[in-house]
Amino acid sequence: MPLLVGMAILLGCQLIGESTARFFHLPIPGPVIGMIILLLGLMVLGRVPEGLRITTNGLTKHLAFLFVPAGVGVMANWSAIEAHLVSIAVILLLSTAGLQLFMVLFMRRTLGSALKNHDEDPVFKEQQR
């Protein structure tokens, strides 16, 4: 039963988010608005309901699985990519790796000293000792 409670909360937030996005013609997808609504709800409530916790733990573990149908969708748009295949591949590779490199260096700099407190990497902690 708690699993269903969790599912109902998630679907309810998505429904509100989806309706808000459509009603106000927002460029933001419904689920993202639903996420904000749920976050506000949790902040007001002050805790995570048991059912929601169970559903969340189940979904986080298999999040990547849910992307498979969307990923297969690349084949549907293949004709648009084929014409400029090489330049698209190079641009995507360089811009993605470049953005990641920038983000790591930038976040390290801006987060600064706050970083040392939450390193969860056990191997690194071992090396530090």
Binding site: V32, M35, L59, V68
Partner: peptide, 26 residues
């Protein structure tokens, strides 16, 4: 892809609730 997605959309649909769910770890 259209024929495949007819069935796979049920998995795809769960991306919505999964996005909402991200509020919990946040």
């Amino acid at each position: 892809y259209h024929d495949y997605f007819e069935g796979a959309q049920f998995i795809h649909f769960l991306l919505g609730p999964a996005t909402v769910m991200l509020a919990v770890p946040i």
